[in-house]
Design a protein around this nucleic acid. Structure first.
Lengths: 114, 114
DNA sequence: CTGTATCCTTCCAGATACTG
DNA sequence: CAGTATCTGGAAGGATACAG
C-alpha cells in the first residue's frame, strides 16, 4: 500500500480525496455486504464500464481500502474485500443512507422503479 | 423549491445525486458553522471560481438544502443558510470528519501545512 | 459585492476491441 | 473471467471580462 503524503489538514477533505467519487461510494456499499468478485461488482454497479471499475478498484487498493485476491486458475477469479479501514466507512455509508431516506421521505412523492 | 421526480430507489444514490460533489460537501461544512455571505464562502472554499460557486449554490437552493437571502442594498449583500434538511447533513459531514481522522491517524505520518 | 456571460481546457467516463 | 489498450465525446471547472 502506498501511503499518501500530504493529506489535507481538514479530515473532511481527506475523506473527499479518498472517497469523493460516486462509484467508490457504491463499491463500498456493495462490499459492505461481503467479498465480491469483479463480475459481481460490475453487474451490481449498474452501468459502470470495465475500465472505470478496474481503475477505481486499483486506487482503492492502493489507498488501503480494499484487498485484491487473485486465484491462479483459468478462467481467472478475483475477489475484492474491504480492509479494516474500508469497513469503517460503514459509518459514512450509513449516514448517507439515513440522510437519503430523510430527504426522500420529505421531498419525494414517488420514487423511480428499477 | 423544485422537487426532483424519480429519485433513485437506493437512498445512498439519492444522497450522491444531491451531494455527490466535492464542493457541495465543503459548502455544507462551512454553512454548518452558521450563515455565510457569498464572499465568505468563496474565500473559505479555497480555489473555487465564482461561476462554480454560484452554480452549486443555485442547485442546492433548488433542492431545498439552503436558503438565499438578498439584501436590497448597494453594494449587494447575499446570505446563505442551511435549511432544516440541509442541517441534517451534519450527520453525514460528521461521519466523513470522523473517518478522515481515522484514516489520517492510521496511514499518515505527517499532514500538509496550510 | 455578487453576480452573468463567454470562452477554453482538461479530465473522466463510456465504447470498443483485444488478450492471458 | 478479468482484465489492458485506445479513442472519443461531453460535462465540469477555471479564467476573464463585464454589469447592476
Amino acid at each position: 500500500m502506498q501511503v499518501i503524503e500530504n493529506l489535507p489538514p481538514c479530515p473532511v477533505e481527506t475523506t473527499l480525496l479518498l472517497m469523493g467519487d460516486k462509484w467508490k461510494v457504491l463499491i463500498v456499499r456493495d462490499l459492505l455486504t461481503g467479498t465480491k468478485r469483479f463480475g459481481e461488482l460490475k453487474k451490481s454497479l449498474n452501468g459502470i464500464s470495465q475500465k472505470v471499475l478496474t481503475s477505481h478498484l486499483r486506487t482503492m487498493e492502493k489507498n488501503g481500502l480494499i484487498t485484491r485476491k487473485v486465484y491462479p486458475q483459468v478462467p481467472p477469479k478475483v475477489e475484492y474485500t474491504l480492509t479494516e479501514v474500508g469497513e469503517s466507512l460503514k459509518q459514512v455509508h450509513d449516514a448517507m443512507l439515513d440522510w437519503g431516506s430523510i430527504y426522500k421521505s420529505k421531498y419525494s412523492t414517488k420514487t423511480s422503479r428499477v
